[in-house]
Design a protein around this nucleic acid. Structure first.
Lengths: 141, 141
DNA sequence: TACACTATTGCAACGATGTTGCAAAATGTT
DNA sequence: AACATTTTGCAACATCGTTGCAATAGTGTA
């Protein structure tokens, strides 16, 4: 785990710092997308709020994580898959937000379908966010 | 216009107040979705920030307007069509955000396509937001 | 129209979220 | 180890949105 994180940082030509390691760790540890507040909870008092903001921004810039729009307008971040690179996200999967546990998931294998645009509208990006009940909450039967 | 607005308020069993009239007017006037800030600009100094927040919330509750999630996490509101009623929005069209003029549009005639969920995930709502260049900005040629 | 009742508004204060500048500390490089 | 460069923490600030409460405006009734 430690090594995987260090490799990822090196691959993104970022220096290895405690905060970056810890924040990446939180993404690998928890397996859903995380809001800023989740990360703040995870890292505890170890790092400043501002550091977390800046680190997340850096990760987005480097293509390590991507942001997910949510209907209730909280910013949520999730790890990108390998196909993402700096400044160039390939994030065309559907995102799922559980109304019950409130977690956000990347449905890596569900591709955003194409839609037919009205005349004059040129689409460059499509975001699709589904909400409902996730498989963990459903299995609690 | 004035009459149309008053009728709409009555139909929603809301009392007719200056702020409600003015805020509804802004939606009819401009023909795109509006952020809180846009409305604040439109009504100027006439009404308090808090009043606008509360009025928008009331309109959402009554099914007069609906919120649109945006990738940059700003809250944006648009008029609902007739099929919406209090507490029950039928808002299954695609939303479009222009990267150029930054306006948000409801593509009333573009229906959100269905997607196949992985086992265990139950979808209850689907939001689809497309960004790109709108027809107005395209026609500037 | 005037009255009383209820709903709405404005103000002030607050909390949460996110940003910036700058000095101190940590990192990478030689 | 020493230097140059990044990164971090702190403080301060801006924005956004919410709440409680008193003042005001709107509605229904006589």
């Amino acid at each position: 785990m430690e090594q995987k994180i260090i490799d990822l940082l090196k691959r993104s030509s970022l220096s290895i710092t405690d905060s970056r390691k810890k924040i990446l760790e939180s993404f690998f540890q928890k397996n859903s997308a995380l809001a800023h507040a989740d990360i703040e909870d995870y890292v505890g008092e170890d790092f400043d709020r501002v550091t977390i903001y800046r680190t997340l921004q850096t990760f987005v810039d480097k293509g390590i994580i991507h942001t997910i729009p949510t209907p209730d307008n909280a910013v949520v971040y999730a790890l990108c898959k390998d196909s993402c690179s700096a400044g160039h996200h390939h994030d065309n999967h559907v995102h799922f937000i559980c109304d019950n546990c409130n977690k956000t998931f990347c449905l890596e294998h569900v591709v955003v379908p194409n839609v037919h645009m009205p005349v004059g509208f040129a689409a460059s990006q499509i975001d699709m966010v589904v909400s409902g009940v996730c498989n963990f909450c459903n299995n609690v039967s």
